[in-house]
Design a protein around this nucleic acid. Structure first.
Lengths: 225, 225
DNA sequence: GTCTGTTTGAAACATACGTTTGAGACACTC
DNA sequence: GAGTGTCTCAAACGTATGTTTCAAACAGAC
């Protein structure tokens, strides 16, 4: 065959296993046996396990960042001279991830879960790779957030962005498990789209919370320094 | 010595390394060499690596859940017949974690980071252990949250609790790094307590966000199923 | 002092990992 | 059809892991 499908089979299997079990917990032998290819094929085609991890991310992150740039372009054009609102900015991001062309029905879930893992698992090489490959859409998103929340001080905004990131990364990185728990308890099925639809209002409300430095209840034992 | 301090040295080293690097990424040899004890001591005193992980959690989770139960007792007594508000409930939890007797200055950060890892890293044995050992204070907190947000459906509440958990665990687990970044950028110093003071209003606002199923902006391409 | 149960020490065990090797199969060019 | 570059395969390599072993050191009781 002109271009072997071995590479794609490996990427498919790796993507799924990484999302299910994390990076360190997934061995090359699991990947190659799921992909039904020889063990050596990974090192032949990708060079190393770390390079395979990068390739898995690049495969969906490259088209995603293009989609995202486009969404931001449209958004800013639509808004004319005044900056997009917080809600619009958050939805632009959410839509871009939901509208991504997907290889299978689990596409978004895997996508989100991998992003969460990238943040959560302290894989130095991965963070370095993502920073130098995809820094532009990220800082553009940050700029939009800043314009959308001019009432916040830089420090408040900084921490609230961390809170948003945390809620998102954490939820998405364990979304499979959480969905299972919920279904076992209540029988309710939840799609990733629905999780996103619930997450965005939560984030927007938190981001715009009234008092940036609300005091604890009067009888609290905490003293504010 | 009557009761060897080997056990505590192992627990101290394990706690710190687990929080820094995760469970699978931390080997027993790292732990024993940091603790300056023999490799076999771990299996002698704890039986296995998994049992050591459980012991690390039990050491801070047992006193914490006691403190928490007490805080909830006081809160419910103070409120009499009407249920505590969301703010009061969140502050009771926050105070309990801040007031915890700490072994060192990194106590809270490590505590939070480990909790986040427990959720994130798919360690089946750990989740099982935590569920059957500490289900009571957890479900009590859930009950209080339910009483404090009667306007939410069970499903909405479930997901918003996950969002809160995520924002908290994520922020606290990387609070050291985040504080350093902020200080380098702006020169502002931030204590863990101050982070909590910013976090609680964010969470409360998100939890009480107006529309549980806010629609995307009118011109959005998302269609809600 | 001697015995007994507990704890430490160095070494080895079995297994799993990521990676490398070298021979073979295949498709394609000239 | 010989030659060439690409890819696959089974096997092995070196290393790191969790766990076990067994002798030595130690403590306290009698």
């Amino acid at each position: 065959m002109a271009q072997s499908d071995t590479v794609d089979r490996i990427l498919d299997a790796a993507e799924e296993l990484f999302a299910e079990r994390g990076f360190s917990e997934t061995s090359l032998r699991m990947i190659t046996s799921k992909a039904k290819v020889n063990l050596a094929a990974v090192n032949y085609h990708f060079g190393s396990k770390n390079a395979l991890i990068h390739a898995v991310f690049a495969r969906f992150l490259t088209p995603f960042s293009a989609t995202l740039e486009q969404a931001f372009d449209e958004l800013e054009e639509r808004c004319g001279d005044q900056p997009p609102t917080l809600n619009e900015t958050l939805w632009a991001l959410t839509e871009s991830s939901i509208r991504m062309p997907q290889r299978n029905e689990k596409g978004i879930a895997i996508f989100m879960r991998l992003l969460g893992l990238a943040y959560t698992q302290s894989q130095g090489h991965l963070r370095k790779f993502l920073e130098q490959e995809y820094s532009e859409p990220f800082s553009r998103f940050m700029r939009l957030l800043k314009q959308a929340t001019p009432q916040l001080s830089a420090v408040d905004r900084y921490w609230r962005i961390q809170f948003m990131l945390g809620a998102t990364a954490f939820t998405m990185s364990s979304s499979d498990a959480l969905r299972d728990i919920l279904q076992n308890k209540t029988g309710v099925e939840t799609s990733v789209q629905e999780i996103a639809l619930r997450l965005v209002p939560f984030l927007a409300a938190g981001m715009q919370a009234e008092n940036p430095m609300l005091m604890p209840p009067v009888d609290s034992k905490i003293s504010v320094a």
